[in-house]
Amino acid sequence: MRRFSGWLQSGIAACGALLIWAAPAAAQVDIVGVWQQPGNGVVTRGGQYEDMWERCCGGGAGRGGPAAADFIGIPLNEAGRARAMAHDDSLWSAPEHQCQPHAAAYAYWGVGAPHIEAVFNDSQQMVAYHIAGTYRRLPREIWMDGRPHPPEYERHTWAGFTTGEWKGNTLVAKTTHLKKGWVRRNGAPASDQATLWTYFSRHGDVLTVTVFVDDPLYFSEPYVKSTDYRLAASIPTARFDEAGSVSAGAEASGGDQPYFRCYGTEEVIFPEEHWVSHWLPGENPSVGERAKRLHIPIEATLGYAVSAYPEYIGQIKTWREQNPAEPLKTPVDTRKTAPAQRGPSGGQ
C-alpha cells in the first residue's frame, strides 16, 4: 500500500507539474484601459513631461523633436552609425515617406494615448490585447493564445507581429516582422531584422512600458528605454463631424483632427523625381552641433553603447576638465539667462 501511495503521489505531482507547465500563465493585474502620458493624450494635448526631449525641446529644427545627429545613449554599431549619419530630415518631405507611422519600437514615444482592449473569441476566452491610439494609431495585437510567429516570408509591418505571455505581474511581449524604422526621430535606425521585447508593468493607475530593441544589424547591444502612462481620468467622445474628415497630409492640418488620412503630396520641390535625401559619408553638417551646444565630446553624440551608462558621466566630466568651455565674450545679465529651477532629474 505504501509503495502504491508513493506511485500515486509521484504521478499526481508529475501531472500537476505538467499541467502547470502546459497552462498559460494568468494575469494577476491587467493593462486594459485608456492610458496617457502626463501632459499629453486624449484629454490634454501638447508636450510630454517625461519625454519632452523627443517632442518639444530636444533641440531639433525649431526646437521641435530631437536634434539632428544626436544619438546619445543609443548603442549603434558601425553599420548603425553609418546609417544614422546618412539620415537627412528632408527625407520626410518625400511623398513616399510622408505617411510613415512610428514603428512599434518607437510608438510609445509618439504623441497619442494608447488604449488597450481585450479581444475574446467566440468562447469568450481572451486571445489577444488590442492596442491603438499611438501616433497615427498603428493598431496592433498582442496575441495571448500561443500562436506561433509567422515564417520569415510573411509581410513585415510597422506594428510587427506580437505574442505575449504573463510572467508574474508583467506582460512580456515579443515582436518580430517589423519594417525598418527608427528609435529616435532623427534617423537612429532599427532594422527590419530587429526583435522587440516590450514589458508592460502596472502599478495602480500607472503603466510602465519598457522596450528592448534587439537589433543584430545596427546595435552592439539591446537598446532599452521606458516610459510611464497614467490611466486616463476621462475619455472624451468624438464629434460626429470629425469622424470622417480627410486631410491631404495629416501634418498639413496640424494633425489635430482625431481621424485623419494621409496621402503623399508635394511638400517640397526636389531637384528630380524620386529624390532620396541623404548625407554622403563625412558630410552630415549636423555632426558635432549637439556636442558643442552641450559642451560634451563629439563621440558622446555618435551613439556608442557606453554613452547609455551612468558611468559615462565621469568621462564627460574628465573631458570637460581637459577642455574647459570658452568664457562668454560679452557680459550677460544673469537675471535674464538663468535657467528655470528644475527638479533633481530635470536637467540635461
Binding site: 500500500m1 502504491f4 501511495s5 506511485w7 500515486l8 509521484s10 504521478g11 499526481i12 508529475a14 501531472c15 505538467l18 499541467l19 507547465w21 502546459a22
Partner: peptide, 21 residues
C-alpha cells in the same frame, strides 16, 4: 481509492499528459 489507482495507471496519466503536451 488509493488501491484503485495502480502504478500503471499513474504512469499512464503521466504519459498521456506528456503525449498531449
Amino acid at each position: 481509492r488509493t488501491r484503485a489507482i495502480t502504478p500503471p495507471a499513474a504512469a499512464l496519466c503521466v504519459l498521456s499528459l506528456l503525449a498531449l503536451c
